[in-house]
Structures are given as C-alpha cells and as structure tokens.
C-alpha cells in the first residue's frame, strides 16, 4: 500500500475507528434498536476502506472515477453511516436520527443516504449486484474497484454461492470482497446454527483468490487489499477474522448484541471503555 499524502497513518485510522465505534454505541442507544455487534466487528475494515483504500469524493458522491462500496451486510448500517459521517458525506448531527420517522438513515443501508450505492438488508444480494456493476464497468472500460463487505452468516444464502461461481467464471477481478467473520449470526454462534467452515476452502474451490487476515489489524487489511488489486483473472475474497462487538468488553463475542441496542447504562459504560482505548 503506497501511502499517498492524504492517507492517514495507522494510529490515525485507529482513532477514526474508535470514534466510529463510539458513534455506533450512541446512535443505536438513541434509536433503541439496531445492530451494534456487527457494526463494531466491521468498523476497522470500513474505516480502512474509506480513509485509506477507496477512491472516493465525499463532496461528489457520484464522481465517475470512484470505487464502488457495497455493504452487503446491510444491518451494519450504524457503523456504515458513522463512517460516512466521519468522511463528510452526511453531517454528524444527523446520525442521531437513525431509525426514526422521516430520517434518511433507514435501519438498513439505504441509497437515500449520500455515499450509499446500494440498498441492502436482505442478505446475499450484494455480491450479485457487484457482479453486475463489474460487468457494466468492463463493457464501459471503467477501472473502478468494486468492494463488497459481507457477513459470515451471509454465507448461508444460496445466492452468495451463485454469485461466487458467476464472478469467478466471468473473471471479475475488479471485485474485492470481505467477509466479516465474527462467528456470530442472529440466533447465536455460526458453529451452532449452520457451520460454514472451512470457508477458505469453499471460496478457493469456487475459484477465488482467498486471503485470511486479522480484521482488526490495519496493516493486514491494507496489505490484503493491495494484493487484491494486483490479482488478475479472478476475484479476491478477504476473510477477516473479527470479534463481534469489538472494543466493548461486555459486547465482545456476545450474540445478544447482534440485533439489540445498548441501554443508557450499557452505552455509558461502553463509551467509557472506548475512551480508554488508544
């Protein structure tokens, strides 16, 4: 990864990710519902993308030369909107309207929000949409990267594997996908619901370039992404091992915070903990 003059350092990325996590706690608490666990587990990946990796322009969200990001795990909207606010797509003050009547910040990622390319929420569709965009760009000679962030529970969906086959067969090497492998889905631990392991072998068998990383290590995220840019002839799947609820002790690895907002007391405790992290 070449650090262009505007690219923040790893310590700066950590600071942004911490602010994103604090925002996730505040806004899900204010909304009284939402999905904090998967927002926290994917906060570092989304921070790395928007502050170091993607070509994009918050002042011109439809800039022709931009890379395309699709949050296929649309329930991580609190994290996504927080990153977009940090990047300058939406005012930070708007974040507190999450999930409330009249807001642009719908409970799942929604194109009414500047910067959001695709409305998502029903799992399994993001990779297919990425395939369509990649095909269109190939026809038009556009060089944009198409980045998809998926959940590990999303690997339960049949459509994911339809798209996996299709992308590899069509050699859609402009696609970089991430799986936020936090090991927890709505009803509990993925190993107890529908065990998708060994995911690496599955994606390799489907013809993808597969890289496993620690999804909380910015160096690894950046390096894996750079590798995907050099990979020709096949799409890349970056399987990011993450911790659900990362950054807040009582939310970490706790399935109950997949789709439940922290109470006021829990939020206060969580914010205190996050303030203590570097």
């Amino acid at each position: 990864m070449e650090h262009s003059p505007g690219t923040p350092s790893v310590s700066e990325l950590r600071r942004i990710a911490r602010d994103v996590r604090k925002s996730v706690i505040r806004i899900t608490n204010a909304a009284g519902s939402g999905h904090p666990g998967g927002s926290l587990s994917s906060a570092d990946i989304m921070t790395a993308l928007y502050f170091g990796l993607l070509k994009h322009d918050p002042k011109n969200p439809h800039w022709e030369g931009r890379d395309i990001f699709i949050l296929s795990k649309g329930h991580a909207a609190p994290g996504y909107y927080s990153v977009l606010a940090q990047a300058g797509y939406i005012p930070e003050s708007e974040l507190m309207t999450l999930r409330k009547l009249g807001t642009r910040l719908q409970g799942h990622a929604h194109t009414g929000v500047p910067g959001v390319e695709v409305s998502t929420g029903s799992l399994g569709q993001g990779l297919s949409i990425a395939c369509g965009i990649a095909l269109a760009h190939r026809l038009d000679g556009r060089k944009s990267r198409i980045v998809v962030l998926m959940s590990d529970g999303e690997n339960d969906e049949g459509e994911t594997w339809e798209a996996a086959m299709f992308a590899a067969y069509r050699k859609l090497d402009t696609i970089t996908a991430f799986i936020d492998r936090n090991g927890i889905q709505n009803d509990g631990f993925t190993k107890d619901i529908l065990d998708t392991s060994v995911l690496e072998d599955k994606w390799k068998a489907f013809g993808w370039n597969v890289i496993t990383i620690n999804g909380h290590d910015f160096g690894e995220i950046i390096h894996a992404y750079s590798t995907s840019l050099q990979t020709k002839g096949r799409p890349t799947m970056i399987i990011a091992n993450t911790v659900k609820g990362k950054g807040v002790s009582f939310m970490e690895n706790n399935p109950s915070f997949h789709g439940k907002a922290p109470t006021a007391d829990e939020a206060a405790k969580a914010l205190k903990e996050l303030d203590r992290t570097d």
Binding site: Q125, S128, G132, D140, E162
Partner: peptide, 16 residues
C-alpha cells in the same frame, strides 16, 4: 441461478 441473475441485472442497471 435466477436469484443471481436478477440481482446481477440490478447491478448492471445501477451502472447505467
């Protein structure tokens, strides 16, 4: 793969 076809179609349309 009809589900993939339909969502891929959506992606193509989103790109113009």
């Amino acid at each position: 793969s009809e589900a993939n076809m339909v969502a891929t179609a959506a992606g193509l349309a989103m790109a113009g």
